[in-house]
């Protein structure tokens, strides 16, 4: 997952489309917040292409950083109730065979909604 930060100049250009075409990579937009003067977009690409895509994006004047910190669940605090399961937009949480609630953090897009709903405050997003 890559976080793109646009400034007032780059925000006007169709950079994602150009990047996709020139690097021949499929890009999946996970989250976008684009205004008149700046914007932030989170995209997902396959790992093997990540560096090439980031290089291309930077050449177009977009700040590109890999998102590393995904959701963390504190198993000391978690009571495995499952309140987080239906809240997460990308289905990070599920009930495992042993009925524990487990988090597949790789899917996390850092939206933070689950952090605000956990009754035990067991979820956090590292800075």
């Amino acid at each position: 997952m890559i976080l793109l930060k646009y400034d007032s100049r780059s925000v006007r250009e169709p950079i994602i489309a150009k990047t996709a075409i020139e690097t021949e990579t499929l890009l999946n937009i996970i989250k976008a917040s684009v205004g008149a003067r700046q914007g932030e977009i989170i995209i997902e690409v396959e790992d093997a292409k990540a560096d090439e895509v980031m290089e291309k994006l930077r050449a177009f004047g977009v700040e590109a950083v890999k998102i590393e910190g995904r959701i963390e669940k504190d198993d000391e605090l978690c009571v495995h109730c499952g309140a987080c399961i239906s809240i997460c937009p990308v289905e990070v949480f599920s009930v495992a065979d042993d009925k524990k609630v487990v988090a597949d953090s790789q899917k996390c897009i850092r939206c933070g909604v689950c952090v605000t709903v956990c009754p035990l405050s067991a979820l956090s997003l590292p800075e």
Partner: peptide
């Protein structure tokens, strides 16, 4: 984990801990 409401699949959260 899923129920249908008005023709759409809706995700379900338990609130009690089945594990415990």
């Amino acid at each position: 984990g899923k129920v249908e409401i008005n023709g759409e699949e809706v995700r379900v959260s338990p609130l009690s801990s089945y594990y415990h």
